[in-house]
């Protein structure tokens, strides 16, 4: 029983694979599914680069086993855009220069996705606490906060007109 067949729904598509029980979810996503948008930074659940949504909750995929995601919904950065159209959070990072080297960006965006889902109009302080589990080594936090504020505004306008 050191391997197990699992089915994980990634960005809406089910993927069934026989995996080693010790395989980490981040490696399943990157190596088994070839979706390399999710990054591995510290590998110790500190930096947040590997953040994805598991059943809608932001989690650090370097500290979850792939077998734990069996039967669950995973959303990665690849699942955010609608075709060629950016998700409002991606647009925010683009418009507000929310990235420099870009390494932390997928994790920041996935964390911001749950943050805005729970709190559509966060204060600056709530955003800063909300991304406290994500490190940007370019120290570009000012613009990351602005990017999330941009997205919050855009998403509430869209929600109103919808």
């Amino acid at each position: 029983m050191k391997t197990k067949e699992i089915t994980v729904h990634v960005n809406g598509t089910p993927h069934t694979k026989e995996v080693s029980t010790r395989l980490l979810l981040v490696h399943f996503i990157r190596d088994d599914l070839d979706m390399t948008g999710t990054h591995i930074g510290c590998d110790t659940s500190n930096c947040g680069a590997c953040t994805i949504l598991l059943d809608g909750k932001s989690i650090k995929s370097c500290t979850v086993l792939a077998v734990q995601a069996d039967g669950k919904q995973v959303t990665t950065i690849e699942g955010m855009a609608n075709g060629a159209q950016f998700h409002p959070i991606q647009e925010g990072f683009h418009e507000e220069h929310g990235l420099q080297c870009g390494f932390c960006t997928p994790g920041m965006i996935m964390r911001a996705a749950e943050l805005l889902e729970k709190n559509p109009n966060p204060t600056e302080e709530e955003i800063r606490w909300g991304i406290s589990g994500n490190l940007c080594r370019c120290t570009g936090y000012q613009n990351i906060v602005k990017a999330i504020q941009y997205a919050a505004e855009k998403m509430s306008t869209e929600a109103e007109t919808a």
Partner: peptide
Amino acid sequence: IADPQVRNL
């Protein structure tokens, strides 16, 4: 305690 992602699990 830790950070929001960790507290989710």
